[in-house]
Design a protein around this nucleic acid. Structure first.
Lengths: 222, 222
DNA sequence: TCAAAAGTGTTCTACTTACACCCATGA
DNA sequence: TCATGGGTGTAAGTAGAACACTTTTGA
């Protein structure tokens, strides 16, 4: 390796993040941000940065969320690497590789800072077409990552659903990811028999109802 | 991004490959190669290179196999990305990230070139302790990759077992990956009912026997 | 009291696991 | 003919899907 170090011409290392969010009201959303700088300036794309010299990959991902999409570290509930992407079509200027992450972020209350960059949240199917670089491909990989790990990856599932969620929320999340609604009965039993969950016996039912029996609320153990 | 390009000081991009091989006789093996250059020169490590400017990641992986372990492209049966690894402890000289691959390679006949670099094949448990960089971690990730994809990832499974294998081979592979031997009966039924497999009705039984009924040979369809 | 939204219970199926037993080979 | 290594068959346990039916709410 030493002999090669002299040729300090390597592709750029970009970190691209797919900000993902789920809420009972808004459903599953993916965010993009308007690019301030030149390759594709003005267009919407995934928040991304070039990795700093001594920066950890996850720190780069958090910096991308903060500086490019206005999503502070306190809003990041989960961060997972998807993989490395390459290809000559990635960047018209420099050769670059991208290390992609999914970030499950909190979009609940006082977000959307008045100054600085801000994220634009969209339903995945609407966000995808025609993003620059290979960001369409990265979003697909992120959705696939979430699909294959729902209910299997405790941290990811909990980040998406939040600490307190209803059966209806879980049904909506599964529908958003897989395209088809789960059988209500089977979903309910799956929640009931999940050893990590507990019924909340909630008095604080949001009662956002347009009719119908209010769903059970669940919380996570430990 | 443009504003940052000026600071062309980024971590190095290394490609590290876990060469993996399985045969009925040798079992599951992982290869390392002696490092000719300075960081940890003389020690054994995974074959790795620094990515060239316009090189695809998979091409870098193939180059690492060829130039660092003497494993030519014709021996590579399968190549899959494991993920990107970072961390300050990775490299004592430069900050570097590693994009890791598993390569399932052919070790059957006339390999081990007399000149140039050559691979040292070892049983995974023996190869791991004390490799430089974070190569122990990368080998673990490679083994985990194979474990979770055996029988699920057709290309990987086929690359490991080869185009023609016996029930005993499959049992040995599963034992090597999971640590426990599968139930012979259940494994046999799994093979019999696998729609991608066909019994070979082989006349060419290797008969390497120290007694016992010779196993059925299987081939892949299409 | 009707429709909407959830929850409960039942059945059917498929897959996994475990295990008892049978078959083919070399020493 | 016996130990060894494989293969066959069977049965229990478990997970998933489908669906009929009941409960709780708002209009």
């Amino acid at each position: 390796m030493t002999a090669e170090v002299a040729t300090r011409e390597q592709p750029l290392i970009a970190i691209d993040v797919v900000p993902m969010s789920f809420s009972g009201s808004g459903g599953l959303l993916v965010a993009t941000a308007r690019r301030p700088y030149d390759p594709y300036a003005g267009q919407e794309a995934l928040p991304g940065v070039l990795l700093h010299p001594a920066e950890r990959l996850t720190d780069g991902a958090r910096r991308a969320l903060r500086t490019k999409a206005g999503l502070g570290p306190e809003t990041v509930r989960h961060l997972a690497q998807i993989g490395a992407f390459d290809g000559p079509e990635r960047d018209p200027r420099d050769a670059a590789i991208s290390i992609a992450f999914v970030a499950v972020v909190d979009t609940d209350p006082g977000e959307t800072p008045s100054t600085g960059p801000s994220a634009v949240w969209r339903v995945p199917a609407q966000a995808e077409p025609g993003l620059p670089f290979d960001h369409d491909r990265i979003i697909d990989a992120a959705l696939d990552h979430a699909r294959t790990r729902l209910w299997r990856d405790h941290a990811l599932t909990r980040a998406l659903l939040g600490g307190r969620f209803t059966t209806a929320d879980a049904a909506r999340l599964q529908t958003a990811l897989f395209g088809v609604a789960p059988d209500p009965g089977n979903l309910n039993r799956a929640l009931r028999t999940n050893p990590a969950l507990r019924r909340a016996d909630d008095a604080t039912s949001p009662a956002r109802g347009r009719g119908g029996r209010p769903p059970v609320t669940w919380t996570w153990l430990d």
